[in-house]
């Protein structure tokens, strides 16, 4: 299974085995990574699964769609590498993906 590393604000790293086909949000929730609330359960409705994708992975994770981009625009401290993790699908190509968590969600 592809490995994904989630890095909290305080530097704590969580390396998880992520099942292909799940979202990066679901992989975090299943592995009890703190800091990803995902209140809406992955419907791209709440913006509480915000992550910063490591620059080296931006090409492979792709760009957000218009809806997601608008949501991110209002997120806490959005950056050019911001994504909603419920909208990134886990694939073999993402083995090694690194994402960082913001200080707050919402």
């Amino acid at each position: 299974m592809p490995k994904i590393t989630y890095i909290e604000q305080n530097g704590t790293e969580h390396v998880v085995d992520a099942e292909v086909g799940l979202s990066v949000m679901e992989a975090a929730v299943r592995n009890m990574v703190p800091g990803i609330d995902a209140d809406c359960g992955g419907a791209c409705a709440c913006a509480t699964c915000h992550v910063y994708v490591d620059e080296a992975w931006l090409e492979k994770t792709g760009k957000p769609e218009a809806m997601e981009e608008s949501m991110l625009d209002f997120a806490y401290e959005p950056k050019p590498n911001s994504r909603l993790s419920c909208q990134i699908r886990v694939s073999e190509a993402l083995d090694g993906l690194v994402v960082r968590l913001p200080e707050f969600q919402g």
């Binding site: 913006a47 809806m67 608008s70 949501m71 625009d73 209002f74």
Partner: peptide
């Protein structure tokens, strides 16, 4: 409807 910017700004 398909307008998250209005939603989030409106919510705030």
């Amino acid at each position: 409807m398909n307008d998250p910017a209005s939603f989030i700004a409106g919510k705030k």
